[in-house]
Simulated assay, not measured.
Amino acid sequence: MSDLSRCSLNTATVKHASLTEAVEAAAGAGLGAVGLWRHQVQEAGAATARKIVEDAGLRVSSLCRGGFLTATSDEGIREAVADNERALIEAAEVGTSELVFVVGGLPGSAPEAPPAPGTDRDLVATRRRVADRLADLAPIAERHGVRIVLEPLHPMFVADRAVVSTLGQALDLAAPFDAGTVGVVVDTYHVWWDPELQASILRAGREGRIAGYQVCDWNLPFAATALNSRGHVGDGYVDFATISRWVAEAGYTGDVETEIFNAEIWAAPPAETAATVGARFAEHVLPHL
């Protein structure tokens, strides 16, 4: 019997399940943790969500998500800081020290949409604003005992979701802050292609900034929505053996979340999906940690 204590089911992988159903599926499959999303925590209430997880004998590996830091207006900046402070509080209340941040795309962009009139195309300035907002939020994160966890997204999402594309960029943004305040997550779907990945993972380890390891596969052909082209570990092109070994060599010993966006997987029974998550973790990831 494989040790699945480090295997975590990110609840996005069973999108249509309730929080209780997702937690029951993870526990039933013998997993050790779940990664939660804010809408579920808000619907249940943080205290109730925490109790559901703890009563099942599980941990909360992370909360998704904070971020979207690229607003240009004073009002937009105030709203972003206020929403991220709420997210940091929610993370603490639900029992995790890790809040995953997707930093946001170009101001005026919308997911999977052409640019609207007035879209700001200044990518350099947009990335600079991300750094400015991190400086605003770092003291708040410290106060609540929660780490801001920067998630670089694949470059195809620069326009509409994240102007940070590589682990190296994320580490550079984190560098001015204590490693316990700003860290990074290694998400195989987004970074597997990066020729500097090994060096960046080892750097992240030296700096003590690896706050999470998320796994899923890169499937082809793409779905109509590229974001939903993730697959179960082992079904696509990602070299999990090598990346997992790099993460282990960097000193990471925390939870490994499976986070999948895929309509076919969402349609499957949550218990079946959780069992597959555990089996694929045992086969493709665990032997290399």
Rank of each mutant, 00 (worst) to 15 (best):
A135E: 13
L137G: 02
A138R: 06
A141M: 00
A141H: 02
G145E: 06
G145Y: 04
R147Q: 02
R147K: 10
I148Y: 09
I148L: 15
H154V: 03
M156N: 12
M156Q: 12
F157V: 06
V158E: 09
D160I: 03
D160M: 07
R161S: 08
V163K: 00
V164K: 03
S165P: 14
S165R: 10
T166R: 06
A170L: 07
A170M: 07
A170T: 00
L173V: 03
A174R: 01
A175Y: 11
A175S: 07
A175N: 02
A175C: 12
P176Y: 04
F177P: 06
A179P: 12
A179F: 08
G180I: 10
G180R: 09
G180Q: 09
T181I: 14
T181E: 12
T181A: 14
G183H: 07
V184F: 09
T188H: 03
Y189K: 08
H190M: 11
W192R: 04
P195C: 01
P195V: 01
L197M: 07
L197E: 06
Q198C: 07
A199L: 13
S200T: 08
I201T: 03
I201Q: 02
R203L: 14
G205L: 10
R206E: 14
R206Y: 11
E207L: 09
G208D: 06
R209T: 00
I210P: 00
A211F: 00
Y213V: 02
C216I: 02
W218Y: 14
W218G: 03
N219G: 08
P221Y: 09
F222P: 08
F222Y: 15
A223M: 05
A223I: 02
A224V: 05
A224K: 12
T225F: 09
T225K: 13
L227H: 10
S229F: 07
S229R: 08
S229A: 07
S229D: 11
H232C: 03
V233Q: 09
V233L: 11
G234W: 09
G236W: 11
G236D: 13
Y237S: 14
A241Y: 03
T242Y: 00
V247M: 06
A248F: 05
E249Q: 14
A250F: 05
Y252S: 02
T253M: 08
G254H: 07
G254A: 04
D255W: 07
D255M: 13
F261C: 08
F261Q: 06
N262V: 08
N262G: 07
A263E: 15
A263Y: 12
A263W: 09
E264F: 14
E264C: 10
E264A: 13
E264T: 13
A268F: 12
A271Y: 09
A271C: 04
E272K: 14
